[in-house]
C-alpha cells in the first residue's frame, strides 16, 4: 500500500520536495559562489559616513533591496520564464544587462558571482548539465559571447531546475538581503543578533518589493538610488577595504 501511495499520488509532491531542496542549496551560504566578497556598496557607504548604526543600516538595506527589485528582478524574471528560451536569447539579455550595469563595481561583482555559480553548477546540477555547459561555453569560450551576469545565471538555473518565477525572484531578493546583512556584521555595524532581527523584519518589506517589482519586463528595469550608486562606484578606490563591491 505504502509503496503504491508513493508511486501514485506523490510524484508532484516529490517534485516539489526536490525543487525545495534545490532552492535551499542555491541560496545557502555554504554554496561557494563568492557572495560574501560583496557588500552591495555598504562598505563605501559606511566609509563615507552614511551608515553608522542599526537605524542607518536598516535604511541602507531597504534601499539596496528595493534597488535589486527595480533593477535586477526583471532580468531574473525574464531568465526564469525563459525555460525554453534559446541560448541566443539568453546571450542577448546578458549583453543588455551589461549595458544596464554601467557602474563598474556592481558590474564586476555581478559577472564574478555569475561566473562562479556557472562553474559550480556544471558539476553540481547534473540533470541540466547540457544547458549549463552551453552557457559556460558562451561565457568562458574564446572569444566570450556573454558576460555571465549573476541575475541571469541564477534566473536561468532556477528556471531549468523547475523553480517557479515568484520563488526565483523572492530567492534573489533574499540573496541581496543576506549578503548586505552579512557584510554589515563583518563591518561591525551591527552584531549577529541584531542582523538576524533586521533580516526577519525586512521580510515584510521584501514582500512589498515583490508586490511592486516582480514579473516586470526588462524594459522597465531602473535605478532608484543614485546616491548609493555613486558611492558604490568608489569602492575600488577606498584606501582599505574588506569587500570587492
Amino acid at each position: 500500500m505504502a509503496s503504491e501511495g508513493e508511486e501514485g499520488e506523490v510524484p508532484s509532491q516529490r517534485d516539489a520536495g526536490a525543487v525545495a531542496w534545490t532552492i535551499w542549496q542555491l541560496i545557502d551560504s555554504v554554496l561557494p559562489t563568492g557572495g560574501f566578497a560583496h557588500s552591495f556598496g555598504l562598505e563605501s557607504a559606511a566609509q563615507a559616513g552614511l551608515v553608522f548604526d542599526a537605524h542607518t543600516l536598516e535604511k541602507f538595506a531597504v534601499t539596496a533591496m528595493e534597488n535589486t527589485g527595480s533593477l535586477l528582478l526583471p532580468f531574473v524574471f525574464a531568465a526564469v520564464e525563459g525555460r525554453v528560451m534559446s541560448l541566443e536569447e539568453w546571450i542577448g539579455l546578458d549583453c543588455a544587462l551589461h549595458a544596464v550595469m554601467s557602474n563598474g563595481v556592481a558590474r564586476a561583482a555581478s559577472v564574478g558571482q555569475g561566473k562562479a555559480l556557472l562553474r559550480l553548477a556544471g558539476g553540481v546540477f547534473k540533470e541540466i548539465a547540457g544547458e549549463v555547459a552551453a552557457m559556460r561555453v558562451s561565457v568562458m569560450g574564446k572569444p566570450p559571447r556573454a558576460h555571465g551576469h549573476h541575475a541571469l545565471v541564477v534566473g536561468r538555473l532556477l528556471g531549468l531546475l523547475g523553480v517557479d518565477a515568484s520563488t526565483a525572484q523572492r530567492a534573489y531578493l533574499y540573496l541581496t538581503l543576506r549578503d548586505v546583512l552579512s557584510a554589515a556584521t563583518r563591518l561591525n555595524l551591527v552584531g549577529p543578533m541584531e542582523a538576524a532581527l533586521l533580516q526577519h523584519r525586512h521580510a515584510q518589506l521584501a514582500e512589498r518589493v515583490m508586490g511592486k517589482y516582480a514579473n516586470r519586463s526588462v524594459h522597465e528595469a531602473h535605478q532608484i538610488a543614485p546616491l548609493l550608486d555613486t558611492l558604490q562606484g568608489s569602492q575600488t578606490l577606498l584606501f582599505s577595504r574588506l569587500f570587492c563591491s
Partner: peptide, 21 residues
C-alpha cells in the same frame, strides 16, 4: 547597446526619495 540607463525617482516601497538622498 552601449549604455542603457534608467533612473526613476518616486516614493519607494520602504523609503522616500528624500530619505534615499
Amino acid at each position: 547597446p552601449l549604455f542603457l540607463d534608467c533612473l526613476c525617482l518616486e516614493q519607494g516601497v520602504g523609503t522616500s526619495v528624500a530619505e534615499r538622498m
